[in-house]
């Protein structure tokens, strides 16, 4: 093959075919369909692409598992500063003192309560309202994932009750409502194919499933 020019005998170029591979767009699609030169070039580029995927798989395998020591040592080297968020004032026993809870400490509390429920994992959570003003009405938004087979309504009701207790005990916030949204239904570990990455599991269409329940 000529290595100084990428122009095919039909007048089109391999560069055009390369772009077509990525974008699906080419100036003369009819020609492409019928030109043996172009089809051969395309086939060659596709074989390279397949081989590229094989190289990627081989390189990823060589990189080792994310549960191996190399990743642990990287994680050990990180010092992940807490995300404090807003400062929530607490009543203090002395006028000279300032006592606070960080918003981050409350979201960690919410996560630990949700994670402790069987078959449930917390996602994002938000405190809506002015937490920096004592007594201001606050709405808590929690997203959760529930393992398939666990009763969602019941889980949400239990979680709401436990969150209300935990927030009453550990904060001085005036909680107006606790909204719980089930955003994901997870395959249970037992029914999951070993080695199936979670990204390959198909949760139901989120548009159908979220059940938002509100505290009366």
């Amino acid at each position: 093959m000529n290595t100084t020019s990428d122009t095919l005998e039909c007048g089109h170029s391999l560069a055009e075919l390369s772009t077509y591979l990525d974008t699906g767009q080419i100036a003369d699609p009819v020609h492409l369909e019928t030109c043996p030169e172009c089809q051969a070039g395309l086939a060659s580029l596709r074989r390279l692409s397949v081989l590229g995927s094989e190289l990627l798989s081989s390189d990823v395998a060589d990189a080792g598992s994310g549960n191996d020591d190399w990743m642990q040592s990287i994680l050990d080297n990180l010092r992940l500063e807490l995300r404090p968020g807003r400062s929530i004032p607490l009543h203090s026993g002395n006028a000279q003192d300032n006592l606070w809870e960080t918003e981050g400490s409350i979201s960690a509390l919410i996560r630990s309560v949700a994670d402790a429920l069987p078959g449930t994992a917390a996602g994002k959570c938000r405190l809506h309202g002015d937490v920096t003003t004592p007594g201001a009405g606050i709405t808590v938004d929690v997203e959760i994932a529930v393992v398939y087979g666990h009763p969602m309504e019941e889980r949400a009701a239990t979680l709401r009750r436990e969150l209300a207790e935990a927030l009453a005990l550990h904060t001085e916030l005036a909680i107006d409502a606790i909204d719980i949204t089930v955003t994901d239904v997870l395959e249970s570990p037992a029914t999951t194919e070993p080695g199936t990455p979670p990204s390959l599991q198909t949760p139901p269409d989120p548009a159908d499933s979220p059940t938002t329940e509100e505290q009366p």
Binding site: G64, I74, A122
Partner: peptide
């Protein structure tokens, strides 16, 4: 077991364990 989006949401809230799970998943 949980999807990326949920882990990323938790990590954005400051959950280091969720962040580490993401790091392990995509580290290789």
């Amino acid at each position: 077991l949980v999807p990326d989006a949920l882990l990323a949401g938790r990590a954005a809230d400051g959950d280091t364990a969720a962040f580490e799970a993401l790091a392990r998943r995509h580290g290789p």
